[in-house]
């Protein structure tokens, strides 16, 4: 969980920066630079969104499917927690989270869901802390389900609210292109360092799910991308393949090895493969004319 640069907040942030640094000629700068840029891009974007209407709808459907499945799996997880089945709860924790991790940028765009569902200790005021990681702490650190039941109930109601709002989300191309990069940034900032799952050490599940979420976006945009910039499309595809091959080395049963089993050389290799993918991926928006 970390502050995000969604399109709207970017525009807002830019205007704050402009205001902040232009004490001597502020008015002139603001009016001269900003509206012209945004006006131009928004008309281009609406053409593009119309052209990619089907793709955007497919992504919306994907997000809804993932959040439907998130509810189903969270119900099982919550049942295990409330039934006092510690081993089952631990086993379901990481796989359940993957449905959330694949669509995290959408959840963040929909309001305050990310802090409620995915905050780590210290991300929010202690009194407000709930969600997956609060339960994770109980299951692994305290090694018991007792005391996490109320958080389990809250989690289920939070993911249901998320699902309800999914219906209203308006997906545009910029959301996809920035969302794909954000998913990888999530990995880069916390999963590849083992800070996300500090009690369960199941970071690789999140890692894989974030990459899968980004891959979904790439695959949906692939035909259009190939027609606009075939080299870029090819490069992104190759880097996904390389990263997936690296991740496959850490498969264990139905899941993945614990983060604590990785050596520094392993995480560095993963991190560099991730950066190698994220850089061309961040050029998708430009190639598509977002």
């Amino acid at each position: 969980m970390k502050a995000k640069l969604m399109f709207a907040s970017l525009v807002l942030a830019m205007s704050v920066v402009f205001t902040g640094c232009s004490s001597d000629n502020s008015k002139e700068t603001d009016t001269a630079a900003k509206p012209a840029d945004t006006a131009q891009t928004s008309s281009d974007s609406s053409d593009l969104n119309a052209k990619l209407k089907d793709v955007l709808e497919q992504y919306r459907q994907f997000s809804i499917e993932q959040s439907d499945q998130l509810i189903v799996e969270t119900e099982k997880f919550v049942a295990a927690v409330k039934g006092g089945d510690l081993e089952q709860a631990k086993a379901l924790y990481a796989p359940t989270r993957m449905y959330y991790e694949r669509i995290e940028p959408i959840a963040e765009a929909l309001g305050n869901f990310d802090p409620d569902i995915d905050a780590r200790d210290g991300d929010v005021e202690a009194a407000d802390w709930r969600g997956f990681h609060r339960i994770e702490k109980g299951l692994w650190e305290d090694n018991k389900t007792a005391g996490t039941e109320e958080f389990a109930d809250r989690l289920l109601s939070d993911v249901k609210s998320l699902r309800a709002l999914m219906e209203t989300v308006e997906v545009d191309t910029a959301m996809l292109t920035t969302g794909a990069v954000e998913l990888l940034n999530e990995v880069s900032s916390s999963k590849v360092t083992g800070e996300e799952e500090r009690y369960s050490h199941t970071d690789l599940y999140d890692f894989v799910a974030n990459v899968e979420g980004a891959k979904k976006i790439y695959e949906l945009l692939k035909p259009e991308l190939a027609s606009q910039d075939a080299d870029l499309e090819k490069s992104i595809g190759e880097k996904f393949t390389a990263l997936e091959a690296l991740l496959a080395k850490y498969k264990s049963g139905d899941g993945y090895v614990l983060f604590t089993e990785l050596k520094e050389d392993n995480t560095r290799e993963l991190s560099q493969a991730l950066d190698a993918l994220a850089e061309p991926l961040s050029q998708m928006g430009k190639a598509l004319g977002v």
Binding site: D37, T41, V290
Partner: peptide, 9 residues
């Protein structure tokens, strides 16, 4: 060339 476009890095 993309140092002014708000929508791309």
């Amino acid at each position: 060339e993309d140092n002014e476009n708000l929508n791309v890095p």
